[in-house]
Design a protein around this nucleic acid. Structure first.
Length: 481
RNA sequence: UCCUCUUUAGCUCAGCUGGUUAGAGCACCUGACUGUUAAUCAGGGGGUCCUUGGUUCGAGCCCAAGAAGAGGAGCCA
């Protein structure tokens, strides 16, 4: 039976003959004995291999440095050193050496920027091992949650012709000859000649398609790649990221918020239960990293405590109007510390959101009922409101440290109101005929939201740069590996 | 896209007011050491000082342009 290092450390009884395969993290030694620490990705911990030179020819150890991959046959025994268990080698087979002169990773702390430049090898580091294991757990928990709640997993297209969503700049998909593109008589690019016979792009959201499926299947969710060609250079934006978009028939905005909170708590709890050692490792990493920071820039609580805090407290729910009033009465506003003016109708800026979440409530906050003027066409209008202060049933879930983690709304199901709004916003009714058909035939109240998966992974792992929570980050000017 | 900062050995960094042969720790190699834990000790090799142009007798250091990276902002998830 194949055993991994996690099993060796936690389950395998002592004095068992074992086979260990993994990559060397570190090597120490003296004349008689060498110590290798090995990791195989199954655990944040390493197992120590003891090599006595009277058993193993010293020649075999030549060239085995950090990064080498080995197969070790030996016996699992109680360690004389600080770790509980270790393996005394009986034989060693070298799968591959890693030339010390050129192998980039060393048994020392590297900067995250350096490791990012070597993203092809970073799965071998303790930090990224932990991050990617947690990422897996969260992804698995997403499916588990929705499955248990009666949702269907649906796949929406990655190549779309829709350009009505307005979620951001899009990547064009084309097979046209860019050297000599076909032109129409007016001198425009002739997309009739293109592969699909029309202009197509990578999806910026699966929401509109998910709505079609929800209005038939009831409760659905998507979990897939999403693309935005925005020139965003921040620690929380990617050009290619994974989005989770549940869409539910017969859910109003309250149901939508309840679901969002329950869902996020479920997946965080899952990671706490399934990756305690990885989280402990990352917690320690974060503490080390923040040692050099000023007190006020450090995280207010350790990682695991922060996650438990989120589970133990209900998210604060306030309306946009209430949020504006809190901000108007806040110290930074009165002392004119905000860069952006606070008044009803503005889109809340990062500094405002951060004040509400990190200073005022000190926990996750859900803001609802945003001004209609700053939100998308498909969001349901609230009734009977003061002229000039119309709102829509939109909600954002704000998390400390990363800001908006979820954006959602109840959708406008009324055909007349929807088309009126689309016309006002210059969105083509003809192109969106398929979307409007759901309102024309058997329309139903429904809601949904989108959650940026990487932002969730960021929050749970405490990683501050979103490029460090996806194996192959795509950002402006960077598509390496 | 805007603002700020950064770029010197494989990595992390130092390098004074512009001055002659550019340094340290770690990594790597060689050797020492009776079980190490960031092992330790001794020695060795290793440099396009981001690029281009300029100022100067002389530039790692000053000036200009550009590139890349980081942080923040905007856009958003």
């Amino acid at each position: 039976m194949k055993t991994n290092i996690h099993q060796l450390l936690t389950q395998t009884p002592l004095d068992t003959e074992v086979v260990v395969k993994g990559w060397v993290r570190n090597r120490r030694g003296s004349k008689q004995v060498a110590f290798l620490t090995l990791n195989d990705g199954s655990t944040p911990h390493t197992i120590q291999i003891v090599v006595n030179f009277d058993t193993i020819a010293e020649e075999i150890l030549k060239g085995i440095t950090t990064g080498a991959c080995l197969k070790v046959v030996g016996k699992l025994i109680a360690s004389q050193g600080q770790q509980a268990k270790e393996v005394v080698a009986q034989s060693i087979e070298v799968y591959g050496l890693a030339d010390g002169e050129t192998y980039p990773l060393q048994p020392r702390k590297h900067s995250l920027e350096f490791i990012r430049e070597n993203a092809h090898l970073r799965a071998r580091t303790a930090t990224f091992g932990a991050v990617f294991r947690i990422r897996h757990s969260l992804a698995f928990a997403v499916h588990e949650y929705f499955n248990k709640e009666g949702f269907y997993y649906v796949n929406t297209p990655i190549i779309t012709a829709s350009d009505a969503e307005g979620a951001g700049q899009m990547f064009r998909v084309t097979t046209l000859d860019l050297q000599q593109p076909p032109q129409t008589e007016e001198g425009q690019l002739d997309f009739a000649e293109d592969f699909f016979g029309r202009s197509t792009n990578l999806t910026v959201s699966g929401q509109l398609e998910a709505e079609l499926l929800a209005l038939g299947l009831g409760k659905v969710y998507t979990f897939g790649p999403t693309f935005r060609a925005e020139n965003s250079n921040t620690t929380r934006h990617l050009s290619e990221f994974w989005m989770i978009e549940p869409e539910m028939a017969f859910y109003n905005i309250q149901d939508n918020m309840d679901l969002a909170e329950d869902f996020v708590k479920y997946v965080i709890r899952y990671a706490l239960q399934h990756n305690p050692e990885d989280l402990q490792f990352l917690e320690k990493r974060l503490l080390d990293e923040e040692k050099n920071k000023k007190q006020e820039e450090r995280s207010p609580m350790p990682l695991v405590e922060k996650l438990n805090f989120v589970l133990d407290h209900s998210f604060e729910r306030i309306t946009y109007t209430e949020a504006i009033n809190i901000l108007l009465n806040s110290k930074p506003h009165k002392k004119k510390k905000f860069t952006y003016e606070v008044k009803w109708g503005i889109d809340l800026q990062s500094e405002h959101e951060r004040y509400l979440v990190e200073k005022h409530f000190k926990k996750p906050v859900i803001i609802v009922d945003y001004p209609k003027a700053i939100k998308a066409f498909y969001m349901k209008s609230n009734d009977q409101e003061e002229v000039g202060k119309e709102t829509v049933r939109a909600m954002d879930v704000l998390f400390p440290g990363i800001g908006e983690i979820i954006g959602g709304s109840q959708r406008e199901e009324n055909y007349e109101k929807l088309t009126e709004r689309m016309t006002a916003m210059n969105i083509s009714l003809e192109e969106m005929w398929w979307y409007l058909d759901t309102r024309r035939f058997g329309t139903a109240p429904h809601s949904g939201f989108g959650l940026g998966f990487e932002r969730l992974v960021q929050f749970v792992t405490g990683m501050t740069n979103i490029r460090d929570v996806i194996p192959f980050p795509r950002t402006p000017k960077n598509a390496d590996f």
